[in-house]
């Protein structure tokens, strides 16, 4: 039982990170139909910039805030400089642009931060809390709490405010949205900025637990994408559920089978989803073949 609890804690913690990453995919996909493969780099920036700002002597909250700002700016610049000029191109083209952006951001990070592995200091100590024989790191509580807050905030934004609903309207019917005067360009820009913020928060939260490096974004981004697809691309609820399911699957596989297979889980999962459940758990739109 203690063992199961231990795996559960670990699964829910990494699942929350994947959920935030998946929400980033969902927001951009909804607004623009683009799958943003630079999402993982936002996560990497969140972790790495936090580490370096903290090392430079900034208090932790400000270091994290700075990292979020850097990722938001990266998202806005990506949209403005690379996506917007190609707005009339096919979606596939835009997706390839995001892959290019991902490589570019990773390259710049490698030059600026070097190739080393880094860990961020945990937000509030390292003494584990023991529950039912399993130990829970305080950082895990940070991950869970902040993720829950972000999810609640997004839910309120999209369900209770007119600007949030306007973003949903763009995804539901672009022509209808243009004809009532919703600003499509600003919607895309907002989506990229918001996803940058979400990714960076996820990256900063995870950095004390998983270590981070200039290339950490690739794996986290892919896992976020798998979680988003598993839940159904574009569904907020699906992104959260997909993230948690993926985290739990990974933790249980690592615990009960072998940790060597941990990273294989998401890729087996996405194959199964694409074969048997192409709309994901909560998706309304079928994935398009590209």
């Amino acid at each position: 039982m203690a063992e199961f609890l231990q795996f559960l804690f670990s699964g829910v913690t990494s699942g929350s990170i994947y959920a935030l990453a998946a929400l980033g995919f969902a927001i951009i996909f909804n607004a623009s139909g683009v799958i943003n493969f630079a999402q993982g780099e936002f996560i990497m920036l969140g972790g790495m910039v936090s580490v370096f700002l903290a090392a430079a002597g900034l208090a932790l909250p400000f270091a994290v805030l700075g990292a979020v700002l850097v990722a938001v700016v990266a998202g806005l610049v990506l949209e403005k400089a690379a996506i917007e000029p190609a707005r009339s191109a096919e979606t596939v083209t835009l997706i390839i642009i995001t892959i290019g952006a991902s490589i570019l951001i990773q390259g710049v990070a490698q030059i600026v931060f070097g190739k080393g592995q880094h860990a961020l200091r945990p937000f509030s100590g390292e003494a584990p809390i023991v529950i039912g024989g399993a130990s829970l790191l305080p950082q895990s509580l940070w991950v869970l709490g902040v993720s829950a807050l972000m999810v609640a905030g997004l839910w309120l934004f999209f369900n209770r405010t007119l600007p949030g609903k306007a973003m949903l309207a763009v995804s539901a019917n672009r022509l209808g949205a243009e004809l009532v005067g919703i600003d499509i360009r600003r919607t895309w820009l907002t989506a990229f900025g918001l996803s940058g913020a979400l990714g960076a928060v996820a990256g900063a939260l995870a950095a004390p637990i998983t270590m981070t490096s200039y290339d950490a974004g690739l794996m986290l981004g892919l896992k976020g994408f798998v979680a988003a697809t598993l839940g159904g691309l574009g569904s907020g609820l699906g992104a959260v559920a997909g993230g948690l399911i993926l985290g739990l699957l990974e933790a249980m596989t690592a615990g009960y089978v072998s940790s060597a297979y941990k990273d294989a889980v998401p890729f087996v999962a996405i194959l199964l989803v694409l074969f048997f459940l192409p709309r994901g758990l909560f998706g309304s739109r079928a994935a398009e073949r590209v």
């Binding site: 609903k165 306007a166 949903l168 309207a169 539901a172 209808g176 004809l179 919703i182």
Partner: peptide, 29 residues
Amino acid sequence: VRAGLAQVPEGRQVFGPLSVEDNLRLGGI
């Protein structure tokens, strides 16, 4: 739209997943 030109497009183009009231309120954005 701001200058006072509105269109009811062919095929209606409503926001299907949003509520009727939200559809209308978005008209007044």
